[in-house]
Simulated scan of single mutants.
Amino acid sequence: MYSFRNDYSEGSHARILKALMEANLVQDEGYGEDRYCLEAIRLIKARLGRNDVDIHFISGGTQTNLIAISAFLRPHEAAIAANTGHINVHETGAIEATGHKVIAVEVNDGKLKPENLKTVLEAHSDEHMVKPKLVYISDSTEIGTIYKKRELEQLSAFCKENKLILFMDGARLGSALCSAENDLKLSDLPSLVDAFYIGGTKNGALLGEALVICQDSLKEDFRYHLKQKGALLAKGRLLGIQFLELFRDDLYFDLAKNANKMASILSEGIGKAGFKFLIHSPSNQIFPIFPNTLIQKLEKNYLFNTWEKADAEHSVIRLVTSWATQENDVNAFLEDLKKAMQ
Rank of each mutant, 00 (worst) to 15 (best):
S9I: 13
E10S: 09
H13T: 06
A14S: 12
A14P: 14
R15M: 10
K18A: 05
A23T: 06
D28C: 12
D28K: 11
E33C: 12
R35V: 15
Y36N: 03
C37Q: 00
L38V: 10
I41G: 02
L43P: 00
R47Y: 10
N51V: 09
D52V: 00
S59R: 12
S59V: 10
S59C: 13
G61D: 04
Q63T: 15
S70H: 01
A71V: 06
F72Y: 01
F72H: 01
L73I: 02
P75N: 05
A79H: 00
N83T: 05
N88S: 06
G93F: 12
K101R: 13
K101N: 11
V107L: 03
N108A: 09
G110W: 07
L112Q: 06
K113M: 14
P114V: 14
E115T: 12
E115K: 11
L117H: 04
K118L: 15
L121K: 00
E122I: 08
A123S: 13
A123L: 12
D126Q: 08
K131A: 13
Y136I: 04
S138W: 14
D139V: 10
Q154A: 13
A157Q: 11
K163T: 14
L164E: 05
D169G: 01
G170D: 02
L177D: 04
K185F: 08
P190Q: 02
D194V: 02
G199D: 00
G200Q: 04
N203V: 03
N203I: 03
G204I: 10
L206S: 15
A210R: 02
Q215R: 10
Q215C: 10
K219T: 02
H225F: 14
K227R: 14
Q228I: 12
L232K: 05
L233K: 13
A234K: 15
K235A: 12
R237Q: 05
L239G: 01
L244G: 07
L244D: 10
L246G: 01
F247S: 05
F247N: 01
R248C: 07
R248E: 11
F253G: 00
L255Q: 03
L255H: 06
K257G: 08
S264G: 14
G271E: 13
F275N: 05
F277G: 07
F277A: 01
S281W: 07
I286S: 00
F290R: 03
N292R: 06
L294Y: 07
K297R: 07
L298Y: 07
L298I: 04
E299N: 14
K300R: 09
N301V: 13
L303E: 15
W307S: 06
W307M: 10
E308L: 09
K309A: 12
A310D: 15
A310E: 14
D311F: 07
A312H: 07
V316T: 05
V320R: 07
T321F: 15
S322R: 07
D329F: 14
K339H: 12
A340I: 04
A340N: 01
